[in-house]
Nucleic acid binder design. Sequence first.
DNA 1: CGCCAGGGCCATA
DNA 2: TATGGCCATGGC
Length: 231
Amino acid sequence: MNDSILRIKDVHDKLFSYYGPQDWWPGDSDFEIMLGAILTQNTSWENVEKAINNLKPYLDPHTISLMDDVILAELIRPSGFFNVKTKRIKNFLSWYEEKDFSIESLKSMETHSLRQELLSINGIGRETADSIILYVVEKPIFVIDAYTKRLFSRLGFDLPSDYDSIQSLFHNSLDFDTYIFNEYHALIVKHCKIYCKSKPKCTNCLLKDFCNFYTELILNINSDYEEENQS
DNA sequence: CGCCAGGGCCATA
DNA sequence: TATGGCCATGGC
């Protein structure tokens, strides 16, 4: 697709005018957002919310970092993968403690080195690191998730296989702006939860008229129809 | 019942 | 570099 640079922005504009501003990430505090970013790894947000609710009385970094692993695992059980996530949260917190549990110290870092440090933590991958950088540290970086890959693949983009290359596509197609990146990612999540699900609901999708997936779907339905009428 | 969810690590080739 | 197994709950 040779005009993908323009179309990434077009998709944003259509989603934004359709859904309006999302004012996201679902979380009541910076620390809650950090935990949510880890807890939501390959997990539905509904299950993450149950875990967050269990954590509500303990939602500060110092308390959680001192909490026994078995206790923490039990509290976050509803989010799934609770043993690995317990380790990941603890790994993250031992790094965060070196930063004095201070958001400001994260904000004072240069984005690239902050990202490198986050990625060096066992259990923090690209999406989790970028979610923290965008939604907590509030630096411009585009979050690529399963929704993003699915939506744009279906639309007809021939996406690169690796995360950073996909991210570059978005960085090169949009104003390099925290608010835009924040809203756009939230809009993609919103749209994919309603329409571009694993089993898509294309009928009322605002993007169907220029969606490759929908176009092929219709072609297949028509060819099936013709096959049925041949006999 | 089976499928899926806002990943990431590790072993293997 | 890239593919597969693994981690696990809860909603539909």
